[in-house]
Design a protein around this nucleic acid. Structure first.
Lengths: 146, 146
DNA sequence: TCAATTTATTTCGCATGCGAACTATCTAAG
DNA sequence: CTTAGATAGTTCGCATGCGAAATAAATTGA
């Protein structure tokens, strides 16, 4: 229990994430593609035809999370749900042409975001940040506790 | 444009925040007090009787954000909205006894969260993380751009 | 074969928080 | 005084994502 180390990290983390989210949302020009949605586009860009569960795992989303995301992106004509031929329960997700275009555009935008996320910090510092963020993932696990 | 520095920080930040949020929500025993709500409790613990706008600023929330949070916490009997005697538009927020109790409990829980947020990292590393998070706040500003 | 279980996804109700538009109230200027 | 802002909150519709419960199809065992 170190005495003077609580930099209000909980709050800082929360605010940083919301600010980034908000900023990305504000600068998607057309009517399109929020941060969460671009995440799914990228996943499908690498693994088109993924199962919903696979895509959800890649984005760290539970079943209700991807289900909703897919609903919205299907409505926006960015992706398509097609039944899996071998499993009647499962659906596979495919990019539409509009989805591919949106992905390309997002990819370009991501470059600037990454610049803002790293400029002014050394590689070593960014490594520390990345390692810390990744560690928090295992330290606040999904399923169980303690 | 540095070549190999995009650790997928956008994604890491998003996931870390959601994991922390989810973990805190899962372990609030009673029926009570989410992370956002405990934030407002702490603000009022230091500044009981704050205006909604002041509380929102302290939590980096816009008007709709605190308005909703206050609605839910008022319904849960954690805080009270009382008209400002000098300004007919404004409301001041006050902790109820239940709110004070919940705050004390949250404060205790926060200790463990802080431990999980810092254990295994040196003070210098935590400083880097805190500085990075704070920097992101100014780098992805609320109002304008560029 | 048929019941029990597991697995993939959906649905529901909820908390959070945003932007845009609206309502009061207050303040300043003429 | 009266009108034109500015300011404090609210409301609405939306996106995100969670936990719990439901649905349906697949798999496993007896």
């Amino acid at each position: 229990m170190s005495p003077r180390r609580e930099h209000r990290l909980v709050f800082l983390l929360n605010v940083a994430q919301r600010r980034l989210q908000r900023w990305m949302a504000a600068r998607s020009p057309h009517g399109g593609v929020t941060a969460a949605q671009s995440g799914l586009l990228f996943v499908l860009g690498q693994r088109d035809g993924a199962l919903m569960g696979e895509a959800g795992a890649a984005l760290d989303l539970g079943p209700p999370g991807i289900s909703g995301l897919v609903d919205r992106m299907t409505a926006a004509n960015l992706i398509e749900r097609r039944a899996d031929p071998d499993d009647g329960r499962a659906w596979r997700l495919w990019l539409t042409p509009a989805g591919r275009a949106a992905m390309a555009q997002s990819k370009a935008g991501l470059a600037e975001v990454n610049a803002r996320l790293t400029d002014g910090f050394t590689d070593a510092e960014i490594d520390v940040v990345a390692r810390w963020l990744a560690t928090m993932q295992s330290r606040f696990p999904k399923g169980e506790d303690e």
